[in-house]
Simulated assay, not measured.
Amino acid sequence: MTHDSIPMARSAVLDGFEITARSFGLDPGGLLRTARIPDASLRDADLPIPTASVITLLEQASAAAGTPSFGLLMAQARAISVLGPVALLMREQPDLRGALSSLTRLGWAQAEGLESSLEDDGETTILSFSLSPGLPHPANQTIELTIAAIVRLLRHFLGPDWSPQMLTFSHRRPADIGPYARFLGIMPVFRLERNSIVMLTTDLNRPIEHADPAFGRQLERLVESTVRQRGAARSQQVSDAIRRMLPTGDCSAPRIADMFGIDRRTLHRWLAAEGQSFSQLLDQTRAALCLQYRSEGSHSLTEIAQLLGFSSLSAYSRWRRIRESSTC
């Protein structure tokens, strides 16, 4: 991630949001639009969305639902695979120590701006979570969702009977604490210095059954590659977003700006600083994908037109004629 880039998250972090929102009679689409997150985020797990927008969305959903445990409910509704390659990498480590080490080193590939650290004094180990400066506060729902999801993942690795020694949150204790013991299996302690999962150090040596360390090393290279891509220039981040949004038919400069939590003018300033424009990136991305799809030979012209975000085959044909020098 570049110094001045906006922290982004995989849209997979919204897994469980729609079903949880609907369980309270809320409109998921309306909440997403208020937080300036595209509806496609619920269908494409790898769409980049601003971490700040995710935090805002969950706080607004919690308020609209009238429950302080919205994040906990989301954690219960989501799939274990939501962490994507990071969860798979953790799963293939020989023991819990290796799994947590992978999480603290590469977990930000899932959500930039959400940081984790591991402290071990020989008897007790503390896995702590915090948000980067500049992200919205409060972020109670995001923190609770994260800790609940990790506790659930660790139980998946070590068995349903495993339990942490303590869970701590820095925010105020809510009036209704019933869901915490029910969903987490332990009552957290509130208003402490950090947000953390406290466990015995001996837990770190517990093996993860059926792990394949060799496969884990391959996954680690994949995740590290993802991390390097996250460090790309803003123009590359925009190109990646265009590539994701083209098949939806709604790939415009305002829509892409919304994905990054900025307005259209800011998007243009971003790109101009790198000698690019949105129209150039859109055209370049379409050209590259056009060449790819045509070389594959598995798509009809109508399908290619749709994949490139054109409203009709004739619009696609006109674009190809205009690009006389294109390899398409």
Rank of each mutant, 00 (worst) to 15 (best):
V198N: 05
M199L: 09
L200A: 13
T201H: 01
T201R: 04
T201Y: 09
T201K: 06
T202G: 12
T202A: 12
T202S: 14
D203Y: 07
L204K: 04
L204R: 07
N205M: 15
N205V: 14
R206D: 12
P207L: 03
I208F: 01
E209Y: 14
E209G: 15
A211N: 13
A211L: 09
A211D: 12
D212G: 09
D212S: 05
P213S: 05
P213E: 04
P213Y: 09
P213I: 04
P213D: 02
P213V: 07
P213T: 08
A214D: 13
A214Y: 09
A214Q: 13
F215M: 13
G216M: 03
R217F: 12
R217K: 11
R217Q: 08
Q218G: 11
Q218R: 09
Q218I: 04
L219Y: 02
L219N: 03
E220C: 03
V223G: 06
V223N: 01
E224Y: 06
T226D: 02
V227M: 00
V227T: 03
V227Y: 01
R228I: 06
R228N: 10
Q229S: 11
R230E: 10
R230Y: 08
R230L: 14
R230T: 06
G231Y: 01
A232W: 06
R234V: 15
R234K: 15
R234L: 14
Q237G: 03
Q237T: 05
V238N: 06
V238Y: 02
V238P: 10
S239W: 09
S239M: 12
S239A: 12
A241K: 05
A241S: 10
A241M: 10
I242S: 00
R243K: 12
R243F: 08
R243W: 10
R243A: 11
M245E: 01
M245F: 00
L246P: 03
L246N: 01
T248I: 00
T248Y: 04
G249V: 01
D250V: 14
C251L: 00
S252D: 07
S252P: 06
A253S: 08
P254D: 00
R255Q: 14
R255L: 09
I256R: 02
I256N: 05
I256S: 08
A257H: 03
A257T: 04
M259R: 08
M259N: 07
M259P: 06
F260W: 00
G261W: 02
G261L: 07
G261D: 01
G261V: 07
G261E: 07
I262Y: 03
D263N: 03
D263G: 03
D263P: 01
R264T: 12
R264E: 13
R265V: 08
R265H: 01
L267F: 07
L267S: 07
H268P: 08
H268N: 12
H268V: 14
W270H: 10
L271K: 06
A272S: 15
A272F: 11
A273L: 15
A273F: 11
A273R: 13
A273M: 13
E274C: 09
E274P: 03
G275F: 03
Q276A: 14
S277V: 05
S277W: 09
F278A: 05
F278I: 07
F278G: 04
Q280G: 14
